[in-house]
């Protein structure tokens, strides 16, 4: 199996605090990887390190994507090359029209891939179709980006972006938190639709429920800044029953 994204001995800090402490993880092409782990273990920090968030300072180790170390790359370069993070808490951007924003992003990516840009009408047709698939209110298309969106609406908007941007690596940081049952189903269906045997997923979650919809190939346990255990889907049950304490830190 070829590895799409490989994280080697990654150390990272936020401010003065060491959060990731020599983390190793490899995402395989076309597979769904899930990460579970206690609050504060460093799951969001890992996802931010992968996309180049300004708060996270990588002090050691490598993130290899498409054969090159991307640790020094700008966030937009990583995104254009196909890495997508659905944020745990998407920010609100008042005054930036949701459709306008997404079209700019989609066309930037298309241009990067050497594809023709979409005009406003083509783009909106596609966006509207996905909006209705995800059960979003059509009015959200023309609102300001995430402004005043409910928790669930923000999460669906992240999935909408993911579906339009068609990334190669999709990181979902607690996409399931704050979603009602219908939303969870709609979002999961959206994600499943994006599985094409090539695209890889990293699903960060606290709940096994979403993993009933999106079947993971691997489960990783992240504790205190390291992956302490990797197993198959059967691990979910064990975690549910025993919690994280039985998984020792390395």
């Amino acid at each position: 199996m070829s590895k799409v994204l490989e994280i080697k001995e990654l150390k990272a800090k936020i401010g003065d605090k060491n959060i990731l402490k020599g983390l190793n993880l490899a995402l395989e092409e076309g597979k769904v990887h899930a990460i579970m782990g206690p609050n504060g273990a460093g799951k969001s920090t890992l996802s931010k390190a992968i996309v180049g968030h300004y708060n996270v300072e990588v002090t050691d180790g490598e993130i290899i994507y498409n054969g090159k170390n991307i640790v020094e790359e700008e966030p937009e370069e990583r995104a254009l090359d196909g890495i997508f993070l659905s944020f745990q808490n998407p920010v609100e951007v008042p005054g930036v029209n949701n459709a306008y924003f997404l079209r700019t992003a989609v066309n930037a990516r298309r241009k990067h891939l050497g594809l023709p840009e979409l005009n406003a009408a083509e783009f909106l047709r596609e966006m509207k179709a996905l909006v209705s698939e995800l059960g979003m209110k059509p009015e959200l298309i023309n609102r300001s980006l995430n402004e005043g969106f409910s928790g669930g609406e923000k999460k669906r908007n992240e999935i909408l972006q993911m579906m339009m941007l068609e990334p190669n690596v999709v990181i979902l940081d607690e996409i399931d938190s704050g979603l009602d049952i219908d939303a969870l189903r709609a979002v999961s269906e959206g994600i499943n639709k994006m599985k094409d045997g090539k695209r890889s997923f990293l699903v960060i979650t606290h709940y096994s429920r979403i993993l009933d919809y999106i079947k993971p190939d691997y489960i990783h346990v992240l504790k205190d800044g390291q992956i302490v255990h990797t197993g198959g889907p059967e691990l979910v049950e064990q975690l549910e029953e025993e919690g994280y304490s039985s998984f020792e830190e390395k």
């Binding site: 996309v51 937009e76 995104a79 944020f87 924003f101 997404l102 990516r109 972006q161 941007l165």
Partner: peptide
């Protein structure tokens, strides 16, 4: 906000 936009590929 700036980071969010950039993380979607906007320079």
């Amino acid at each position: 906000q700036l980071f969010y936009l950039r993380s979607r590929g906007i320079k």
